[in-house]
Simulated assay, not measured.
Amino acid sequence: MTVPALALSLLLAFSGFSALALSLERHHRAVFRSPVPRSRRGGLRAVGSAGLALSFAAAVACAGWSFGPVQWVGSLTGSALAVVGLIAYRPTWLRTAALAALPLAALTLPLALPG
């Protein structure tokens, strides 16, 4: 396990959990001060699920099948705690943090993938 590989998995999971949280009425209202449109709800759920799937794929690609799923579960735990903390204390920061996580994940991708 390398630090860039863990960061990549963590950032992708954070973006996925953020999108899934924003697909819920209560959290969307806390962040955007408006109800979630019905047309956006499905898209946020799809993006959130894709983010979690990409996080799993990144963990397995970087650490292999022997340790990748374990690293992924750790990334899920850390990113879920970060999303919950932001929603509870600074909900308006969630939008910025989730959008910043994607370019950071793209920057860590070349560093994380083996050889």
Rank of each mutant, 00 (worst) to 15 (best):
P103I: 05
G43R: 05
V70D: 04
V83C: 09
T92N: 10
A21C: 06
W65A: 10
G48I: 01
P103E: 12
G74T: 08
Q71K: 00
V70R: 10
P69E: 01
P114M: 09
S75Y: 00
G42R: 09
G74Y: 02
T77S: 15
R41P: 00
A30T: 06
W93P: 02
L86A: 11
G51L: 07
R26T: 12
L76V: 02
T77C: 10
A61D: 06
Q71V: 02
V47P: 00
L12M: 08
S49R: 13
A5N: 06
L86N: 11
A97Q: 10
M1I: 09
F32V: 06
L113F: 03
S39P: 01
A5Q: 13
V84A: 12
V73N: 10
P91W: 11
A13E: 08
P103Q: 08
G115V: 12
A19V: 06
F67P: 00
V36T: 14
L8I: 07
A98W: 06
A88W: 05
A5G: 13
S9L: 00
F17L: 14
S49D: 07
Y89N: 14
G43V: 14
T108R: 02
R95E: 13
G68F: 05
G43E: 03
T2D: 03
E25L: 07
I87V: 15
F32Q: 12
L107C: 09
P4L: 15
G78F: 00
V84M: 11
L104E: 13
